[in-house]
Computed example of a mutant assay.
Amino acid sequence: MIVPRQDYPKNEMAAVVPVMEKSLSESLERIETSHNSRADAVMESLNVALVRTVGDPGAVMLETWESWLLAMQVHSAVFAAAASDLETVTCKIRQEERHLATTGPQPYLNAETWLDAFYLAMICREAARLDMLARIPVSLLRDFGGALDEYTYAWVETLQSFWLRRDDLRTHLIRAVDLSAPEQARVVDAEEMSKLRYPPITMLYRYLRNDLAGFKEALADAVLWHKEYWTADEDRASNILGVVALGPLAIACLAKANGVPVEIESGYLPEALLDFAWRGEFDA
């Protein structure tokens, strides 16, 4: 099955990459001590990865992979700094050891950002960072603030239980499924809940049940709904967040790494990320 990605203005987006990279580099220079720079680096690092993927939909270029790796490093680092009891934590960012002062709760470190961090670590197959993220208390994520639908916390708990192989996985997964029903939406609207938030949950459910046909169908639905959502109007169609189906890609990476065939081709699921084509090329 092939699901083409919508067209983006590749030349225009390629032209802004140097500007975005410069802003990101400036944020990284101050990331050890500045809360504002950390918030900026989180947003900017993911945006750079997405913009690079516009012109490189398969993520086959070295620079594109490096941008995804950097986004993963930044997202993981800020959570490592937030959850530690030490005065500083040492994190590798752009192949440099950075010593980040610990922070405690911060507005930009909510459960939504945690999900992005976890997805990025799954895409990059970073077990140590997944271990760290899976041990961050959900109560701490609630303290980080922000109005979020309750499904978000149930989904976080599901992923944490899955990764740590806890006995309460089934309970959290069922709760996540129930709370991600469109009628449960309070902060996001019903369309976003059904087309963007729910699909990764049902993908994991099918994967855990070893339902290969169901997983294939769930992945296809996830990509099609992602496209439907991000092409519904002109504003969405130009939004950089639609370039990659981040949650479905992460679950697909998990499945493929464990022998489940992924039989869908789409720019929303960059092939080199899905296949982990740069395995062993970098010390993350």
Rank of each mutant, 00 (worst) to 15 (best):
I2N: 15
V3P: 11
V3Q: 10
D7N: 13
P9M: 03
K10I: 15
K10A: 15
A15N: 10
V16I: 13
V17I: 14
P18Q: 09
V19E: 15
V19A: 14
M20E: 11
S27K: 01
R30P: 02
S34V: 10
S34M: 10
H35R: 14
A39G: 14
D40C: 02
A41D: 01
V42F: 08
S45A: 07
S45F: 02
N47A: 11
N47H: 07
V48W: 00
L50K: 03
R52F: 08
G55H: 07
P57H: 02
M61G: 07
E63M: 09
T64E: 09
E66S: 09
W68H: 06
L69N: 02
L69G: 03
M72L: 00
M72A: 12
M72K: 07
Q73L: 06
V74E: 00
V74Y: 01
A77T: 08
A77P: 07
A77G: 11
V78M: 08
F79P: 00
A80Y: 05
A81M: 01
A82T: 05
R94I: 09
R94E: 15
E97C: 06
A101L: 15
T102I: 03
T103Q: 03
L109F: 05
E112T: 13
M122F: 09
E126G: 00
R129T: 06
M132W: 06
A134Q: 12
R142F: 07
A147D: 15
A147L: 15
A147V: 12
Y151N: 11
A154F: 04
V156C: 03
L159S: 04
T171C: 04
T171A: 13
R175P: 06
A176G: 00
A176M: 01
V177I: 15
D178F: 12
A190S: 12
E191Y: 07
S194L: 13
S194E: 15
S194A: 15
L196W: 03
L196I: 13
R197F: 11
P200W: 11
P200Y: 09
I201A: 04
M203E: 07
R209W: 09
D211A: 07
L212H: 10
G214W: 10
F215D: 08
K216V: 04
K216M: 07
A218P: 02
L219Q: 05
V223D: 11
V223I: 15
L224F: 06
L224D: 02
K227E: 15
Y229Q: 00
T231E: 10
E234H: 03
S238H: 15
S238I: 11
G242V: 03
V244M: 04
A245T: 04
L246H: 05
G247P: 06
P248W: 04
L249S: 01
I251G: 06
A255P: 05
G259E: 09
V260C: 06
E263N: 09
I264Q: 07
E265P: 01
S266E: 05
Y268P: 01
L274V: 02
F276R: 08
F276G: 09
R279A: 13
E281N: 10
A284R: 13
